[in-house]
Simulated assay, not measured.
Amino acid sequence: MRKNIKLVRIISFFVVLGLIYVAMLQIKISEYSHLKAPKNADFLIILGARVKGEEPSPVLTSRIDIAARYLKENKNSIVIASGGKGPGETISEAEAIKRELVMQGIKESRILLEDRSTDTYENIKFSKRLIPPSAKQGIVVTNTFHLYRALSISDYQGLSVKGLPAVTPWSAVLKSYSREYLAITKFYLEKYIIGF
């Protein structure tokens, strides 16, 4: 009986600890989800997300839409479409981003493609190589749930950028945030314990 009580207490302790940890992550995510992007940035990096065949997912569409709005208001900004081709994707995420931007009136000459990356770390790493040497101010475009980690990875790689948050579609909230807690934990482990 005492062993059972002790086990329940141990399990309860770790459950409470886990809830506190998740709450702390959510606070961090929320802090970054209301950022205001500066005007006239030299470049934008749109981080890729799932493409179904050739069709951008709702998550990726929201990123493209807010980036297109920014690019229309800031005519001198160029954009790096970032994302390789994953399972179930007929074209790369970068190509899907480019096509949608062009459809929304963004000139193709303003769009650079980074189509080899497979995760956020590589998005930033490979996109850095396409940034013009004269560029000073940059912006990363991604969804509210993802911006904290994206900017943390950028900072870790020595890329100083601001954030432009896209609204996370309601249909993707539960899945996206659940996965993001795990992804942030993985980032912490790699950064502070394992090392990239």
Rank of each mutant, 00 (worst) to 15 (best):
L60W: 06
S134M: 03
R69M: 14
Y156H: 09
I10G: 01
L147Y: 03
G53R: 08
F187H: 10
A81H: 02
G105A: 09
S30W: 11
E73I: 04
I64F: 11
A81S: 01
Y192H: 08
Y188E: 13
L25A: 05
N123A: 11
G138W: 06
E190A: 11
K39L: 13
H34W: 03
G105M: 15
S127E: 00
L60R: 01
E122R: 04
L7H: 04
I153E: 07
Y192P: 01
I29H: 04
Y32M: 14
A166K: 12
P58G: 02
S160Y: 09
L113N: 15
Y188I: 14
K39M: 03
K85F: 03
Y156Q: 11
M103W: 05
G138P: 11
L182Y: 09
I153K: 07
S178Q: 02
S127L: 05
L17T: 05
L60Y: 10
I111Q: 00
A81N: 01
I78G: 07
I20L: 06
V59C: 09
I11C: 13
V102C: 06
Y121C: 01
S30M: 13
L17V: 14
A41R: 05
L60G: 01
V15K: 10
Y156R: 11
T90P: 00
I194F: 15
G163K: 09
G83W: 09
S134H: 13
K175L: 01
Q137V: 15
G86W: 14
E95C: 10
Q26N: 15
I29G: 01
D155Q: 10
N74L: 04
E73W: 06
L101W: 13
V161Q: 08
T118W: 07
T90W: 00
E190D: 14
K3D: 03
E31M: 09
I131C: 00
S152A: 14
G84K: 12
G48N: 12
I106W: 09
R99Y: 05
S154H: 08
R69C: 13
A166V: 04
K36T: 11
I46K: 09
V141Y: 00
L71I: 07
G88M: 08
V167N: 15
E100W: 08
L189F: 13
V79E: 01
P169C: 08
L174Y: 12
G158S: 07
P56Y: 03
Q26D: 15
L60I: 04
L44D: 05
N143W: 05
V15M: 11
T168W: 06
Y121S: 07
T185M: 09
E54S: 09
